[in-house]
Each structure stands twice: as structure tokens, then as C-alpha cells.
């Protein structure tokens, strides 16, 4: 997959979160966005997902520009699977209904098709027997796996993970990372924002390092972790990998 950013800029009021980023990123399957908090990783992910619109510049995904507004933007969002930090499931719907909703409401599947797809995914994510539970009755790790099932169910061309394990304890983190690693071996393409450095090292093909709203460097994961080019990346890695 090829992700191209052209003079991409995003501001919130006076605060420039993404500061004129121009970059071309090629990755076979997995791109990880790393960097210190407040560096612009999540904002970049949201811009790629069409959930925010930039003040200036453009994004293309496999040579197709991310639409700016209207129906085409909604259709674009509908074909991308997004998983948020705090799962964001609908609390009034059970796990099955949460997975089925985008299939029936956005992708025109019949309820029967949607149900069998949802059941298949629940089983694959080791959630059989939990289909009729509401989010409040599930553990954090189970919720996040349901959220992943909802994102995967639509067969998205691209999956986005925004710190998918930040709100989870270590055991649940392991559950969820395992599922994400499985997605890679199934050949899915995704972009991941994470603070789990060791996970990024094993799962990512390509790393983009963001600090202060700029893309300080990007390159193959092996090279980045072995020998970061920039001082800020070196300092960041030294800090997070020390313990």
C-alpha cells in the first residue's frame, strides 16, 4: 500500500498538530506510527481515516485522494475499519448487533448475511458464546476484540488502530495484540498507532516517527529500531526501551 501526504497541515485553534508533512510511505501490510504523546500520531491517523479534515494539504491512499466532504467522504469512511483506544462500541447493542450494524446499515447486507458473518468473526476471535452480551457485560479485552470484529467484518481495504491497547491491562493487551498479529498473517493491511514498542517492532513493516507535528523520519521497521537516523527518535527509543 502507498500512502502519500502532501503538505498536510492540521490545526486546532492556534495549536498546529500536523505541521506541513510531505511524505510517501510504501508498506506491504503494516505501518506503525510512533512517537511521543502529543506528537500528532493519532491526529494523522484520524486524518487518514477521514474523521478530521486538514487545514491544508492532501492525503492519497493507493493513489486515491481522501475525499474532503459529503457522500464520498462517508463512503470512504465506511470502507475503512477503525478501532479506537476506548473501543467505542454501542452500549445498547449486544456484540452481534454491534458487528452487524455497519454491514446492514452501510453495506447493504441482509440481516441473515450479516449475522452469519458476525458469528463467523466472533468464533475466529474466540468470542463464541459472547454474541448476546452487551459491552458492559464484556471485559476490556473482549470489548476490544468485538470492536476489531466490527472493523474487520466489512472487509475493509485498510484498517486503522488508534492505540488499541492503551486502556487495557497487560493480560488483555496480550489478547488483543495476538488478534492484531493474526490479522497481519491473514494478509490484512493496517496502520497502527501504539505505545507497545516491542509489538510495533515485530508486527510493523514500516515505521513513521512523528514528533512536534512533523514526520522526523520513516523507514523499514528493522532499520528504524536498529539505527534511528534522527536525534529525536534516538532519544525517544532510548527512553521507552530502557525499562
Amino acid at each position: 500500500m502507498r500512502l502519500e501526504l502532501q503538505h498536510l497541515t492540521k490545526r486546532y485553534g492556534d495549536h498546529t498538530v500536523i505541521d506541513d508533512i510531505t511524505a510517501t510511505l510504501d508498506f506491504p501490510h503494516v505501518l506503525a506510527l510512533l512517537g511521543p504523546s502529543g506528537g500528532g500520531k493519532s491526529t494523522l491517523l484520524r486524518l487518514i481515516g477521514g474523521l478530521e479534515s486538514p487545514e491544508a494539504g492532501s492525503i492519497t491512499v493507493d493513489h486515491e485522494p481522501v475525499p474532503a466532504s459529503g457522500k464520498s467522504l462517508r463512503a470512504y469512511r465506511g470502507n475503512i475499519g477503525t478501532v479506537f483506544q476506548s473501543w467505542n462500541l454501542f452500549p445498547h447493542l449486544d456484540a452481534l448487533a454491534n458487528i452487524m450494524l455497519p454491514l446492514t446499515a452501510v453495506h447493504g447486507r441482509t440481516p441473515d448475511e450479516a449475522r452469519s458473518r458476525a458469528e463467523e468473526l466472533l468464533e475466529r476471535l474466540h468470542l463464541q458464546g459472547h454474541g448476546h452480551k452487551r459491552p458492559a457485560e464484556l471485559s476490556g479485552g473482549q470489548r476490544q476484540r468485538v470492536a476489531i470484529a466490527r472493523a474487520v467484518a466489512i472487509r475493509p481495504k485498510l484498517l486503522l488502530f488508534d492505540e488499541p491497547t492503551s486502556a487495557l491491562d497487560p493480560e488483555m493487551t496480550a489478547e488483543v495484540l495476538e488478534v492484531i498479529a493474526d490479522l497481519k498473517s491473514e494478509g490484512r493491511t493496517f496502520i497502527l498507532v501504539t505505545h507497545a514498542m516491542n509489538f510495533a517492532r515485530t508486527v510493523a513493516d514500516q515505521i513513521a516517527f512523528l514528533a512536534d507535528g512533523r514526520m522526523a523520519e520513516h523507514g523499514p521497521a528493522g532499520e528504524f529500531f536498529a539505527a534511528p537516523e534522527t536525534e529525536s527518535a534516538r532519544r525517544f527509543l532510548a527512553k521507552v526501551l530502557r525499562y
Binding site: L51, R77, T82, N88, P102, V106, R150
Partner: peptide, 8 residues
Amino acid sequence: ESARAIGL
């Protein structure tokens, strides 16, 4: 936000 993300 979730509703927007899934394209509703």
C-alpha cells in the same frame, strides 16, 4: 465518532 467512522 464511532457512528461516523462506520459510515452512518
